[in-house]
């Protein structure tokens, strides 16, 4: 009996052979995980569907480049979905900022309010941020990137990244206060 990793590798081998059934199997197996990632960078469900469909087409077109020895398939897939989400935002929005900060402001928020909110409510709250600010906030607060990495990925300066993070915190503070 195959281990889950071996099963995934068999499916991946089928995808490399351009088997449509294997591709669908892989998609169904990782749909939940990939959709959760895509939703963080989307404005709504349709936006998330766009991101996900484009990301999976890229996955299948470049799946022969996946090397299991260099990391898990989850990590490889997540990187592609995040990149697609960022491309989606960058195509429609500018990341310019009116100022560059040396350090992002720390805005006090009552975290008990966050604890009481559902995941869907949190998502709706984050989706209310301006797109560029939204992207920087998710990359920093959810994905765990630092400002240097964010600056490289978005082709912006670190000061701009910090400005967007500060803006996100201030906006969320206001939104969370109004959510009480």
């Amino acid at each position: 009996m195959n281990t889950p990793d071996e099963d995934i590798q068999l499916i991946i081998d089928g995808c490399i052979a351009n088997s449509r059934k294997a591709q669908e199997l892989l998609y169904r197996q990782f749909y939940g995980f990939a959709m959760t990632v895509a939703m963080r960078y989307s404005r709504d469900e349709m936006d998330a569907a766009d991101i996900l469909s484009h990301a999976f087409v890229k996955v299948f077109k470049s799946i022969q480049q996946y090397d299991a020895a260099r990391g898990s398939f989850h990590a490889w897939l997540k990187r592609i979905v995040v990149n697609e989400g960022l491309d989606h935002i960058k195509a429609r929005n500018r990341f310019d900022s009116p100022a560059e900060l040396d350090q992002a402001e720390e805005v006090p928020v009552d975290h008990t309010v966050v604890e009481q909110m559902s995941a869907g409510d949190i998502l709706q709250l984050v989706q209310k941020l301006p797109p560029a600010t939204h992207a920087v906030f998710v990359m920093y607060a959810v994905e765990g990137y630092n400002h240097r990495e964010i600056a490289e990925r978005l082709n912006i300066s670190e000061g701009t990244s910090k400005w967007h993070l500060s803006e996100a915190r201030k906006t969320l503070q206001q939104l969370l206060q109004s959510h009480r």
């Binding site: 559902s118 969320l172 969370l176």
Partner: peptide, 21 residues
């Protein structure tokens, strides 16, 4: 710049999102 407490909570909540089956 480090993640604030509520940001960690937001990240944990977003991990629990239903994937819109």
């Amino acid at each position: 710049n480090e993640r604030l407490t509520y940001e960690s909570l937001i990240a944990a909540k977003l991990e629990q999102l239903a994937p819109l089956p």
